[in-house]
C-alpha cells in the first residue's frame, strides 16, 4: 500500500515467511510446485496488456466487433482467446470526444487480468485508490494527461466481479494502419484510463 519505498525493509523477512508457507504446503501435498511455476509464468509471459491492445486494435478497425464489444464484452473478448481469471465478467467503456473513462478499485485491486495482466503498483496504491474517485482530473495531470476543457470524466469503481476495459479514442493520423499496427499504439494506461493511445508519429511500443 505504501508502495515500493517500504518493501525493501520487509524483503528478507518476507522471503523466509513465504518460503515457510510454500514448504509446508508442498510437504503436505496441498500445492504442486509445478503449478506455482505455471501461475508465475502465465502472468509474466502470457497474460498481459498486449491482449487488451489487440482487443482495442480490432475494435478500432472492425465496426461490427466494436458493436459486439459494447453489447457483450465478455463474449467478444473471449472470441479472441482472452478469457479466464479476473475477466469472467467484462464491460468495455468507450472514450469519445467529450467523454473520458477511468477505472479504479478503491476497496482492493480489482483489475481485468485476462486483458491487462497483473496491475501496476500505482493502481494498487493508496494514493490512486483514494484520489481517482474524488479528483480524477488532478490524478490524470500526474500522469501527464490533460483533457480538453468540458470533457466529462466517468470513473468506474470496480466494487464487484465486473471488470472494466477502457477503449481509448483512436488517434488522429492512424487511418489505413493494420489491426496489428493499431494495437501497437495502445498503451496499458490508455486501457485503464490514465493515459491516451499514442499517435502514429510517436512510434510503436
Amino acid at each position: 500500500m505504501a508502495g515500493h519505498d517500504h518493501e525493501g525493509s520487509h524483503l528478507d523477512d518476507m522471503t523466509a515467511r513465504v518460503m515457510a508457507i510454500e514448504t509446508v504446503l508442498t510437504e503436505k501435498g496441498l500445492v504442486d510446485p509445478g503449478a506455482l511455476d505455471l501461475i508465475v509464468e502465465t502472468y509474466e509471459n502470457r497474460v498481459g496488456p498486449r491482449n487488451g491492445a489487440r482487443v482495442v486494435g480490432r475494435a478500432w478497425s472492425d465496426r461490427d466487433f466494436a458493436d459486439w464489444l459494447g453489447r457483450d464484452a465478455t463474449a467478444a473478448i473471449a472470441s479472441m482467446g482472452f478469457a479466464g481469471r479476473q475477466g469472467e465478467h467484462m464491460t468495455a467503456v468507450f472514450n469519445a470526444p467529450g467523454r473520458h473513462n477511468m477505472v479504479v478499485c478503491t476497496l482492493c485491486s480489482c483489475y481485468p487480468w485476462s486483458v491487462l495482466g497483473l496491475p501496476p503498483s500505482w493502481y494498487k496504491s493508496a494514493p490512486y485508490r483514494a484520489r481517482a474517485v474524488m479528483e480524477p482530473r488532478a490524478v490524470l495531470a500526474e500522469f501527464g494527461v490533460t483533457l480538453p476543457e468540458g470533457t466529462e470524466i466517468r470513473v468506474w469503481d470496480s466494487t464487484a466481479e465486473q471488470r472494466y476495459l477502457v477503449i481509448p479514442e483512436r488517434p488522429a493520423g492512424s487511418d489505413g494502419l493494420s489491426e496489428a499496427a493499431l494495437a501497437d499504439l495502445v498503451t496499458r494506461d490508455s486501457m485503464i484510463g490514465t493515459g491516451l493511445a499514442r499517435a502514429p508519429s510517436e512510434g510503436g511500443r
Binding site: E7, E22, D32, V40, Y43
Partner: peptide, 16 residues
C-alpha cells in the same frame, strides 16, 4: 511485474 522473487511466489501460493 514483481519487485522481489517472493512477490511472485506470494501470488502463486495465494492462487494455488
Amino acid at each position: 511485474l514483481f519487485h522481489a522473487p517472493w512477490e511472485a511466489r506470494a501470488l502463486a501460493l495465494t492462487l494455488a
